[in-house]
């Protein structure tokens, strides 16, 4: 081993574009999730189980179930996304990949965004797709199905983005216990309120423009700001 492959010592600015680094990070995280089937299935199973406990615990009366359906699905989606949050940075922190990510010459914003998008595709999107089925189980009125799907589509990415901040802040702590939930859940309350309200209103035939606008605004804000906060928190955590 004396000769080296070509890229040695070119002494130039990075030739890798931010976009290809973004893609590589996204692909890597999806690949890891696909290889760990449990992590992929856990949030979905959790979502399914929690929602199915409500008819057993509250009542199987269709009228009562209809009234709690929207909130139940939304709260369960929130908890399911909490469950898988730790996967975002924990393993990377422990094996040193996080340091490599922080030492990349690429803007950290996009690297964190790639990881958050991967997390949403793994834990958020399946929940969104499964939600109508569970809503049917809870006697949610048929005209509210699409509202449920759309609000979850706008809301679950926010859960991943806000959750990422919490994980980034706590990843360096030895024993975390409930601290992650204490940090993240209050941040997600507005999304929960608006999302659940929109679904409830949809079954009453009320106009939904405002709810969508608010959820969209929260998503836009968290897309642009949350990765910056996560990046700053990660830097503190590895310090």
């Amino acid at each position: 081993m004396t000769t080296h492959p070509s890229p040695q010592q070119s002494n130039q600015r990075p030739q890798v574009s931010t976009f290809s680094a973004f893609q590589a990070t996204l692909r890597r995280d999806l690949l890891i999730a696909l290889k760990r089937r449990n992590d992929l299935l856990n949030p979905l199973m959790f979502f399914l189980i929690v929602v199915s406990l409500f008819p057993l615990g509250v009542s199987s009366d269709p009228v009562q179930l209809t009234s709690i359906a929207a909130g139940t699905v939304w709260v369960s989606a929130l908890l399911a996304s909490m469950l898988s949050l730790d996967n975002l940075y924990r393993a990377d922190y422990e094996d040193g990949s996080l340091e490599q990510l922080l030492l990349s010459p690429q803007p950290l914003y996009f690297m964190v965004l790639a990881k958050n998008i991967a997390h949403w595709l793994i834990s958020g999107l399946p929940v969104v797709l499964l939600a109508p089925l569970l809503a049917y189980m809870l006697y949610l009125p048929a005209d509210a199905y699409w509202t449920l799907v759309f609000t979850l589509l706008l809301g679950t990415p926010v859960l991943s983005l806000f959750g990422s901040i919490g994980v980034a802040l706590t990843v360096g702590l030895g024993s975390r216990g409930l601290i992650l939930a204490v940090i993240v859940l209050p941040l997600t309350v507005p999304v929960l309120i608006i999302g659940a309200k929109a679904v409830a209103d949809a079954s009453l035939g009320v106009s939904l423009g405002m709810h969508y606008a608010l959820l969209g605004a929260i998503l836009a804000m968290s897309l642009s700001l949350a990765p910056l906060a996560s990046a700053a928190a990660l830097k503190i955590s590895v310090n």
């Binding site: 890229p7 070119s10 990075p14 030739q15 890798v16 290809s20 680094a21 893609q23 590589a24 990070t25 692909r27 890597r28 690949l31 890891i32 290889k35 760990r36 393993a91 990377d92 422990e94 094996d95 040193g96 990949s97 340091e99 490599q100 990510l101 030492l103 990349s104 010459p105 690429q106 690297m111």
Partner: peptide
């Protein structure tokens, strides 16, 4: 930089690990 924690994910193969860490710097 290579630290105490070497930055190798155990779930991925050697190639997948190197492909990612290189993608952050040079193609």
């Amino acid at each position: 930089y290579i630290g105490h924690r070497v930055g190798v994910n155990k779930i991925l193969t050697a190639r997948e690990n190197l492909r990612w860490s290189s993608a952050l710097h040079a193609p």
